[in-house]
Design a protein around this nucleic acid. Structure first.
Lengths: 220, 220
DNA sequence: AAAAAACTTAACGATGTCGTCATGGGCACC
DNA sequence: GGTGCCCATGACGACATCGTTAAGTTTTTT
């Protein structure tokens, strides 16, 4: 999961970042709050961990702005003694809070909890017509038949299924698979799409020439 | 873990009770607050989940009485808009609170969190098909036959059995075994998995290439 | 102190996965 | 209808991951 992590303490931040990465997350770590909204608006995050005690900026205000326009889980970090902050934070739309000093494992657990809860429901599984993705089990079925997907195939499909019907640009999908590293000069993406079509249904993924791909959410 | 659950809403209560039982807890569900103290005093509970919005009785008062005499984790349920309740609740000694409407998974997570803080024990017994783990005894049986596991093997299996069917990433499991220390560059994890398969059933633990492992909860 | 158990590490083969390429097809625009 | 361009497809070699065995080291038991 793409996590936006905002923390000005370098030592603490480094530790948490490492822990999050080790858990398999894709972490962007900011040491100040200015560009948080920017990142969120660019769709660079699926969850935000926000330290309310940032210097020079009102973390609470950042939180409110995020919440005003985006439906993204936000977890706030706050000092143990600032009860007011906690309550205010939750009222401003934070999904959860963790008290400093905290246990990294608990942070991870809560991160999982809030991201799973997104969309109101506890349902960690996605359905698009005959397609069913159970993210917790990392399993995909098509018309109630289990289909084995490789890691890249799964990542790709899962991303597309996040917003069925919506177009995902090629650069976006390529970055998803290959990180921020240099662009690869090959048709690897097309090949993976091809494999997905073969394993599922050739009409499930729609090509938009020159743009990208999208999941057909009207499929029967 | 023995959980005392106090909630007057029958529909909600039923769902939560089922979820808690599924997690392996031993649940006592009360729909009124009168006998809460009684249960606690008889040692019938290791944790309390208390709805503050009970009709006809002051939940806060119940909370204070529990706290006055017992060192037992208490998690309160409260409506999103009752700011006063929350602050009072925490001041009265609640270990955490969950806002209604809430996600059952989060409730579970918080329950684990507060009971761990307490130094409490986890759930006594887990069953997944023919697999049975008695955490109190630190014993594992397969098809009613006792199996001797080493420490690492047990830790690994116990973690997987915490959420049968769910994928656990390799980094997660490695961290479980080897702590936060630097990444180990050996296949120790695979070896332990191998030993577990040999001692139990080779199909019990499913490999997800490039991702991690999970327990097959559909096993006969 | 000796023996047993548990653990780590290494090695290697089997298999799965991935990126790349070559080729051919189809869409768009003129 | 021709001409590029973009995409689909199948094949293949390079590489990564995993299972398994075995040897060596540490820890615990006797």
């Amino acid at each position: 999961m793409k996590v936006l992590f905002v923390e000005d303490d370098l030592l603490l931040g480094d530790g948490v970042e490492t822990a999050l990465r080790r858990e398999g997350h894709q972490v962007t770590w900011l040491t100040e709050g200015e560009s948080v909204l920017e990142h969120v608006e660019q769709g660079q995050a699926e969850a935000v961990i926000l330290d309310l005690g940032l210097p020079g900026i009102d973390g609470m205000e950042v939180l409110r702005r995020i919440r005003a326009a985006h439906d993204i889980p936000v977890l706030i970090l706050t000092a143990r003694d600032s009860l007011e902050d906690r309550i205010q934070g939750l009222d401003a739309g934070a999904d959860d809070y963790v008290l400093k000093p905290f246990d990294v494992d608990e942070l991870q657990a809560r991160l999982r909890a809030i991201s799973r809860r997104q969309g109101g429901r506890t349902q960690p599984s996605i359905r698009v017509g005959p397609l069913h993705i159970d993210h917790a089990r990392h399993e995909v079925s098509w018309k109630d038949r289990l289909v084995k997907l490789s890691r890249r195939e799964y990542t790709l499909l899962h991303e597309l299924a996040q917003h069925p019907g919506q177009v995902f640009t090629r650069p976006h999908l390529e970055k998803l698979l290959y990180g921020c590293s240099d662009e690869i000069e090959s048709n690897a993406l097309e090949v993976h799409i091809h494999h997905l079509r073969k394993k599922l249904d050739s009409n499930l993924i729609v090509t938009l020439r020159g743009i990208g791909y999208r999941l057909d959410d009207t499929i029967e």
